[in-house]
Design a protein around this nucleic acid. Sequence first.
DNA 1: TTCTTGTCACCTAGGTGTTAATAT
DNA 2: ATATTAACACCTAGGTGACAAGAA
Lengths: 228, 228
Amino acid sequence: SVQLEMKALWDEFNQLGTEMIVTKAGRRMFPTFQVKIFGMDPMADYMLLMDFVPVDDKRYRVHSAPGRYAFHSSSWLVAGKADPATPGRVHYHPDSPAKGAQWMKQIVSFDKLKLTNNLLDDNGHIILNSMHRYQPRFHVVYVDPRKDSEKYAEENFKTFVFEETRFTAVTAYQNHRITQLKIASNPFAKGFRDCDPEDWPRNHRPGALPLMSAFARSRNPVSSPAHQ
Amino acid sequence: SVQLEMKALWDEFNQLGTEMIVTKAGRRMFPTFQVKIFGMDPMADYMLLMDFVPVDDKRYRVHSAPGRYAFHSSSWLVAGKADPATPGRVHYHPDSPAKGAQWMKQIVSFDKLKLTNNLLDDNGHIILNSMHRYQPRFHVVYVDPRKDSEKYAEENFKTFVFEETRFTAVTAYQNHRITQLKIASNPFAKGFRDCDPEDWPRNHRPGALPLMSAFARSRNPVSSPAHQ
DNA sequence: TTCTTGTCACCTAGGTGTTAATAT
DNA sequence: ATATTAACACCTAGGTGACAAGAA
């Protein structure tokens, strides 16, 4: 079984409609997809990987509405049918293959995974269409030592899906609240914080920033079960 | 077979008497120990590791002599018998185990290896006695798939020694020329360069800095054979 | 109007020798 | 006198969103 780490933060983003930046050079995800794994055979080899499947066959566009955040408090509209599918790449966790014991003894982090909108990317990054919705998937492959292991491919393969990690791929943020939550929670964006340069999120006081309440509430985030 | 990378730089340091800093927290080596590997079975698994053996059973001390570099152009004197041996730790290359094909397709770099003088170190760093001379060794272990693989430990094990990588462990540099060569060649020490902030060593003109001539001369460093 | 691209200041994270203070 | 330690300024390396300019 698999537990999603930082579930509270994922939930907070998901509630607003998570957006992930895609760039030509490749951009990491934030939050980072991280899991705790249980129940592996400690001595057996496993490959861990991720891929991304379209949530629907739609292309989205935004509508800028005047409001508190001029030109930024915008809403998503369906713009038509999805663009042709991108190359369905997968990202192997760089430690693959490794023993079950190795995978289970610490959080597995996919922080090397990068998203790009460059169809000709040759860095092995995940290629996505901007303005489309995606569902990350996590796969565990048992490395079968048997010679005819191909026959057992089905049973040596397990997929885990966390719906709260769905997101829209964008080249620039469309929802200003998403931007603010990224700035508030991603250490690398600390330069854009204008509130107290306090040690958020570590000592964040519940209620101080309504938007981030869910994240603030859970000091010991409870991981969610995966749809398997 | 194995080729030492940056042999020319190693030679230059070795000619002056290489020194490596050891700290409580652990310090990387410079130059970094890097090798190119040939002749592995591409499909077989190998473990790569390093250890460090005393070159002699002596403890050294320095004698400060007045000169061009006051209190720094010093010479090594034998100070007596070696201190009790440190725990003989080994450093496994973090990618171990991996297929021969993986190891051979690029330079293998031991840049995660750190040296410490802390006998109680619990970070898995290599523990060395300061003011003692050491010989780095590089080991290749073939992961034998046979059940009784222990019996073949001898033949599944190969050790490579490059004498030009010998060094004295120190807590502070003793030879000012070593300091200068480190500053000149280690990118992380660029802040201490006072000569032209030019792109040394890339475009270094042979002869301009006599001390670094050997390194400057070889644009395509020839690797040295290992004593095996 | 909407979306994409490239550059930038500002961060995180961590590898350098220097230096002054301390230990032996 | 010699050796070690810890704090420090200054780097490398690379992850942020802002912003202005360009493209569709």
